[in-house]
Design a protein around this nucleic acid. Structure first.
Length: 375
DNA sequence: ATGTGC
């Protein structure tokens, strides 16, 4: 049961591995997500699970957790291998950003790439014959590129609050998907470390992780070019990633990898946060990656109206910001109501000693998708 | 989530 000596979460071990829940009763957690958590804890070789307040149900298992096992379960990483969040600083002062002009310019993120991505892939020794045309593009679902301003910085945070920032959430597009699909029958029963199938998966996974990181970098460069600004990487944090650590294989699924600065994304209409993990052992160098889904995509169509005026309203945010999303279904499925409260996620992380906040960011422009790459 | 499924 409770194990306060180990960490700040609630630990329980039933039939399988120990599950530590780093969330309080304030968190909105679907029963189905906890059912999935317990199911995963019974899988062969699963030793320990850390669950975070953005926990929600996923296709093969819960999203918002880190799973330590002595086997490799590719489905726990999912199709979007290497997906994560990157924060970049622009040398563009917030007071100099002209919103309407910036919105017009940043739409070029929806254009296809110009071919320059091939040299970037070669530079890193990454394959140029697979998914290369998707490199530098954001993709669908919850992915985005946001221009952010700093609303508040905590003491000791040296980020320049007069500047603008980019928060990029994207992954490995078709490459990670192909990697998951190429696995032999039985792979989801767990790959044995040391075996050829595990070696194949690890090699392909590592490529997808590098590819996804490069993808976020190129997206940020394209956005910065559009805004006539220079860009500097502050922090890159994957949240779908497998790591070989002491004690086994750590599967992070919608769980950010601990780094000095970890972005915890809100919805497009609410603040995001930058946090510093505090090294709690039970958290296994992981933490929440965002607000987390409250409602699944399909149910959003029954919850949000899609009249012309509703769509127009959704393209504006309470911060006076803009949302560029010319796909009506996506606009509805990604409505702010689809997400939990990032503020509650943050307060759980803080009260349980997982992380402390270092800055609050507000979105000014959220780029999701243009109708066609013809602007 | 997906150079996307009926």
């Amino acid at each position: 049961m409770g194990n306060p000596a180990m960490d700040g979460g609630r630990s329980a071990s039933q039939t399988g591995a120990t599950i530590t829940q780093f969330y309080t009763s304030e968190a909105w957690i679907e029963g189905r997500a906890e059912d999935q958590l317990h199911h995963v804890s019974t899988w062969a070789g699963v030793k320990r699970i850390a669950a975070f307040p953005d926990l929600h149900p996923g296709k093969y298992g819960p999203v918002g957790c880190a799973v330590l096992a002595d086997r490799i379960y590719p489905q726990l990483i999912g199709n979007d291998i290497g997906c994560g969040m990157s924060l970049f600083q622009l040398d563009l002062p917030a007071r100099k950003l002209k919103l309407e002009k910036a919105v017009r310019r940043i739409r070029s993120l929806g254009d296809p790439m110009d071919g320059s991505q091939f040299a970037r892939l070669e530079q890193l020794g990454l394959p140029v014959d697979r998914s290369a045309n998707a490199l530098g593009t954001i993709g669908g679902g919850n992915h985005f590129c946001e221009v952010q301003t700093i609303a508040e910085v905590q003491e000791g945070c040296d980020l320049d609050h007069s500047l603008t920032y980019l928060l990029v959430h994207s992954g490995s597009r078709g490459l990670g998907e192909a990697t998951l699909n190429a696995l032999p029958q039985g792979a989801f029963d767990g790959l044995m470390p040391g075996g050829v199938d595990a070696a194949y998966y690890i090699a392909a996974h590592d490529i997808a992780v590098q590819w996804a990181r490069l993808n976020r970098q190129i997206i940020a460069e394209r956005a910065a070019d559009a805004l006539r600004a220079d860009v500097r990487l502050i922090s890159d944090v994957p949240h779908n990633i497998l790591s070989d650590i002491q004690g086994g294989w750590l599967h992070r699924k919608g769980a950010a990898m601990a780094a000095d600065i970890v972005p915890v994304a809100g919805s497009r209409a609410t603040s995001s946060y930058l946090v510093a993990p505090l090294g709690l052992p039970g958290a296994m160098a992981s933490l929440a990656h965002g607000a987390g889904r409250r409602y699944d995509r399909s149910s959003m169509h029954g919850r949000v109206r899609g009249k012309r005026s509703d769509i127009a309203a959704m393209e504006r945010t309470p911060f006076g910001g803009r949302v560029i999303c010319e796909d009506k279904d996506m606009l509805i499925e990604e409505a702010p109501q689809a997400y939990k409260s990032a503020e509650t996620v943050l307060s759980d992380l803080e009260s349980l000693g997982v992380a402390r906040r270092i800055a609050t960011l507000n979105p000014l422009i959220t780029f999701k998708k243009t109708r066609r790459g013809d602007m």
